[in-house]
Structure formats: structure tokens, C-alpha cells
């Protein structure tokens, strides 16, 4: 009898935990959730104006997690999500990236280096952009996309399509740094 009650209580507790986590996962998949840290406001605003945001062309909108988490498998997705969440949480409270100047250094460095650890994943892009050669794709893209599809290059989508997520982000942070220095 005791075992049965223990089993039922355990089941209920697990269920509640599962729904809590699921709702958290669901909520944290929205841009609004990402934006709850003020560091992300710039990225939200620039995303809104970009090709994947709300303002441009009225095409399908891609949320933060659609690009910034890998979409290879559910476990990989959740693991990367947990890791990224923890990383950003710690970074927020340590004040590691609390000025536009620090962000400017970071984004500039990313621009200059040829191979950098991806923060936007091709598996995300390819969820929607399935066709890379063919109808609707400009003729001039064939050469590049062929090399990509044949695995002749290690370049990722954003190596070339740099401004699709947040426009000219270096320029944005340069402007913000200038404003801050002027104000301060």
C-alpha cells in the first residue's frame, strides 16, 4: 500500500516538475524571454529590423532560438539550451558584458577572425532554407552553395550572410559606444 502511495505521489511530483520545465522551455523559446536581460535589448531591436524580424518583407519570422540553438536532435537542442542559458545567466550577474564597448570589442573580433565558434547554427537555418540551389535562388549563389553542399568548405551560412540576423551589428555598437562616451 505504502509503495503504491509512494508511486502515485512520485508520479504527481514528476508530472508537476515536467510541466513546469516544459512551460519554462516553452516560455524561454520566445524573444520576449531572451529580452528579459537588458543586454539582449540591442539584439532584439536589431533583429526586429532585420530580414528575419518583424519589419522586413513580411516573410516567416525566425525567433532567437531558431538560429542560436542547434536543431540536430532534441537532446542536443535541450543540452545546448541549458548550457547557453546558464552561461548567459552567469554572464548577466557577473556584469561581463554590461557596456556597449565590451560588446563592440566582441563583435569586432568575431568579424575579423576567419574561424569562430558558431553562435548561429546552420541546422537552424536549414530548417527553413532547405533549397540552396534551384528555384528562387539567384544564379550567382550557385557557386557558393555548391561548395557548401559538397562539403568543400567549412564556412557556415552566416560566414557570408552576416547581416541577416541583426543588420550591421558592429555599426550599431559603434554608435552606442559613441553615444555612451559622449553622455558619460
Amino acid at each position: 500500500m505504502k509503495t503504491l502511495w509512494g508511486f502515485i505521489i512520485g508520479f504527481v511530483v514528476c508530472g508537476i516538475c515536467f510541466f513546469l520545465i516544459a512551460s519554462e522551455v516553452y516560455y524561454s523559446n520566445t524573444p520576449r524571454s531572451c529580452m528579459s536581460c537588458h543586454e539582449m535589448r540591442v539584439f532584439y531591436n536589431t533583429w526586429k529590423l532585420s530580414a528575419h524580424g518583424l519589419a522586413e518583407k513580411g516573410a516567416v519570422r525566425a525567433k532567437c532560438v531558431d538560429c542560436h540553438l542547434p536543431h540536430t536532435s532534441l537532446s542536443g537542442y535541450l543540452l545546448a539550451k541549458a548550457r547557453a542559458g546558464l552561461h548567459d545567466y552567469l554572464a548577466h550577474f557577473s556584469g561581463k558584458m554590461n557596456t556597449p564597448e565590451k560588446w563592440l570589442d566582441y563583435v569586432k573580433q568575431r568579424e575579423m577572425r576567419e574561424t569562430v565558434k558558431p553562435i548561429a547554427f546552420d541546422s537552424g537555418c536549414r530548417q527553413c532554407h532547405k533549397v540552396l540551389i534551384g528555384n528562387g535562388i539567384p544564379l550567382k549563389a550557385i557557386k557558393a552553395h555548391k561548395a557548401y553542399l559538397l562539403g568543400e568548405t567549412k564556412k557556415t551560412c552566416v560566414s557570408c550572410h552576416r547581416s541577416v540576423g541583426h543588420g550591421d551589428i558592429v555599426s550599431t555598437f559603434t554608435e552606442l559606444t559613441r553615444k555612451q562616451n559622449k553622455g558619460g
Binding site: 576567419e114 557558393a144 557548401y148 568543400e152 567549412k154 564556412k155 557570408c160
Partner: peptide, 13 residues
């Protein structure tokens, strides 16, 4: 060459 490499990645690499 970074620009050329967008379409000719293998050659530039």
C-alpha cells in the same frame, strides 16, 4: 579575398 571567398571558398582556403 574574404569577399571573393564568399562564392569561391575552396579556392580562397
Amino acid at each position: 579575398p574574404k569577399t571573393c571567398g564568399k562564392c569561391h571558398p575552396k579556392e580562397v582556403e
